[in-house]
Design a protein around this nucleic acid. Sequence first.
DNA 1: CTGTTAGCGCTTTCAC
DNA 2: GTGAAAGCGCTAACAG
Lengths: 338, 338
Amino acid sequence: MPTIKDVAREAGVSIATVSYVLNNKPNSVSERTRQQVLNAIDRVGYTPNITARNLKANQTRLIGYAWHRDPGDRVNAVLDRFIYCLAQAAEAAGYHLLTFTHPDNAPTPAYDELIRAGRVDAFVLSGTVINDLRIPFLLESGFPFVSFGRSNPEWDFAWVDTDGQRGVREAVEYLVGLGHRRIAMAAWPEESLSGHYRLAGYMDAMQSAGLDIHPDYIQRGEHSEPFGREAMTRWLQLPKNERPTAVIAITDLVAIGVMIEAERHGLYIGRDLSVIGYDDTPLVQYLRPSLTTLHQPLQEIVQALIVLLERMLQGDTRERHVLIPPRLIVRGSCGEPP
Amino acid sequence: MPTIKDVAREAGVSIATVSYVLNNKPNSVSERTRQQVLNAIDRVGYTPNITARNLKANQTRLIGYAWHRDPGDRVNAVLDRFIYCLAQAAEAAGYHLLTFTHPDNAPTPAYDELIRAGRVDAFVLSGTVINDLRIPFLLESGFPFVSFGRSNPEWDFAWVDTDGQRGVREAVEYLVGLGHRRIAMAAWPEESLSGHYRLAGYMDAMQSAGLDIHPDYIQRGEHSEPFGREAMTRWLQLPKNERPTAVIAITDLVAIGVMIEAERHGLYIGRDLSVIGYDDTPLVQYLRPSLTTLHQPLQEIVQALIVLLERMLQGDTRERHVLIPPRLIVRGSCGEPP
DNA sequence: CTGTTAGCGCTTTCAC
DNA sequence: GTGAAAGCGCTAACAG
């Protein structure tokens, strides 16, 4: 690989001049020389070595991102799409993603090592939970990071999140608008943060609409298809005039379980039972009926993350929280109540 | 961040000595000094700066990996798991993954830029196709890379692949062993390479078993659930005594389509129709009946890739092709023919 | 405008 | 055994 010296020799100038041209230093080099240098660069096929630049600038233009794998083989279509979008947005801003892994129970050492070695300039977190070990660690280390997802409210850090509360509220309002009054929700366990917000949106909307929340209407379980089936099983055990006519599922996968179980009992989705999912997972538009769901605008989310990150790296410490509302994608799985 | 100078000062030695200790240079520093240095490192909390090391060594310990997104929202569960395994294996070997993206129609500029800037030491390719533009480009540039997946036979490059031919052959043999004689395959379009190998395995095994291949038994389409349904629709149009009693699908997603369509027509999977998928996609074990499928041992694959890569970076140019047989995971979707 | 030079943090040759 | 010093490729302060 040619270096700046080769270019300098080729152009008959000093390496400093080449550097000036490369970095577009204003009024520091004559147009004539500039052209000579540019030509030389072209001739020798030169691209500045990024490692040398980084050493000088004390940066890496690398953003660390730790894979967040769900335990077992549970799918996490959102994060898989998230990281792809993130990679694109990072590149547009002149960064690259450095991905790494860590044991589930001890994430911090991996972060620590990357920081100490100067491997990355910042981190992007995802899959944050309540009492996430990484956050106090990073806050204490003073190392820049932004997070896709909130955590403990007492921790002051930069995050972007989808406004699950608002999303679910709008979903319920949509169902109410269709005439539903008995609306149930398949929710996450209490300790889940996103689960908490989404459920709060459900409560809000039900209350505002003056609707009863039957104690059995809220079922809790994990991000899996069997949980959806279980929840539906419960609801099917209610007396017919108490049974929900519509269901909000905490994720599409759970919605699928709900639909399967309902269909197994002869209910026709979209007519006898309306179902709304969450995530707009790939393929759910191919279900029959296709699934109405809440779409997380990942492009906007990663955009916001990168903006926060760039600000942070420049020491700008303005408003650091961004809530982005999900979009309700209306498809065929909802209709008027029977 | 403390530097080697801080350590040297703290330990009362020269930076050279610190470096010797760091790099375990044998018989170049007395045990006593060694301990002093080690203590000093500990006290100041020093970790060598990786950018400086890299500049000196003219390397990055970074491996470039380009996201391979399927067009549209088609799922590619295998590659999503592949990259995670790859990240782990790379780390175990002292590398990190640098991920990047590129437009579908023009991949090479992104590769070129990373090479020229000295951003990475090597690439790992995946999702290779026939006439893959990246391969001649990288071969010509002389830059190290290994590939998960084969391409044009006339190109001599290092690859690891699953032996789809052998996998499907064994799947057919398994079905034959159960007593099936009318076995169909939902295959990929002719231009697909992996598709070609898998289909070849089907042909091999059918021939060896002396079984007829009804012209309609081979249906071709893409990696999607609708294609599976279409294929099954065709087979259901055959006279009953010509209809396949077993189906091999090119991917699990296609297998799902086959199963859905068959069930829609009152067939009971595992009894009236046996189905085998490919990939062991997350969740297919939860289908009812659970799906018999060919599992790609990703751990072994990435292991082999990293070994090839390390060899290559050391200039070792031994055997560079590894074929790894998939494993047939027997579940509930197959039974004796009706 | 252009060139000389110091220095980013590290490794390694060469003296002692 | 240990240290001085050169140098990896680049940027930028400073001198001219």
